[in-house]
Design a protein around this nucleic acid. Sequence first.
DNA 1: GTAATATATGAACAATTATTCATATGTGCA
DNA 2: TGCACATATGAATAATTGTTCATATATTAC
Lengths: 121, 121
Amino acid sequence: MHENYGSDKCDCNIIHEDVVNMVRENMPKEEHLYDLAELFKVFGDTTRIKILYALFASEMCVCDIASLINMTQSAVSHQLRVLKQARLVKYRKDGKVVYYSLDDEHIKQIFDQGLMHITEN
Amino acid sequence: MHENYGSDKCDCNIIHEDVVNMVRENMPKEEHLYDLAELFKVFGDTTRIKILYALFASEMCVCDIASLINMTQSAVSHQLRVLKQARLVKYRKDGKVVYYSLDDEHIKQIFDQGLMHITEN
DNA sequence: GTAATATATGAACAATTATTCATATGTGCA
DNA sequence: TGCACATATGAATAATTGTTCATATATTAC
C-alpha cells in the first residue's frame, strides 16, 4: 500500500489534505493497479468475452470457436494469443487440432459480478 | 440464453458440431456480452482504476482526486464523466466543489477477484 | 514426395481513445 | 460588479488496438 502518488501535474489546489493523505495510505501499489487495468483491457472486447464464455462450457478447438462466434479463424487465433498471454486460457495439441480451455478460477466470478452491475435496475 | 450465433464468416469447417451446438445453447444474450465488454473497457484504464480505488476509501472532490493520482484536473474530469455514464460513480455539489463517490456494490469484488488473478503464482 | 487441413503470424488499415490545451460555466467573496 | 477558484467540455493529437489479408508452419493422408 501507499507510495508513488505525487502531485506535480495537478493544476489545482488540494482542498482536503487530510482526506487525500488518508486515501493515499490506502491505495494499492501502482504496479498492481497497472496490472489490474491490463487485465480488464483483455476483458474489454466482445470477441474475447465470447471466447471466454464459450470456454466456460467446454474446451474447444480454434475452428469451432470461430464457427460459434462467427468470426474468421485468423481473428480468433489473434485473440486467443492475447488470452493466452494474459494467462486466462491454456491449450493442448492433438494432431493438427489445438484445443483451448480456461486457465483461471476467477473469470467466472468477475463476469457474474459484472453482469449484476449491468442487469441491475 | 442461446440465439444469434451464426457461422457465415467462419472460413473453416466445424469439427465438433455437437460441442458447438451445446456451447451455443449456453451462451448469454449477445446484448449482455456486449454490455459486459463495455463495462470492462471502463475498468481497462489505469487512471479510472485509480479513481475508483480512491473512492473506495472516501468520497472526494475533483481537485483532490487530481492531486492524489497526479493528473490534471481536466483529465480527471473527463474520466469521471466516463465513470458516471457507466453508472459507477455519483456526485453531489456543495458550492463550487463537486464530490464524487461510488455508485455500485460490485466493483470492489470485481477488483478483488482481478487482483487474485494477478497475484497468483 | 504432394495435397489438404488446422492454426499461427506479420503488415496494413480503420477505428477508438486518453490526454492536453484552451476556454466556458458556475459559485463565492470582496 | 469584478475577481478567484472549481469544474466541465470541445477540438486536436498521439497512441493503441481489432480485423483483414496474405502467407507461413505443422500435421495428416494419399
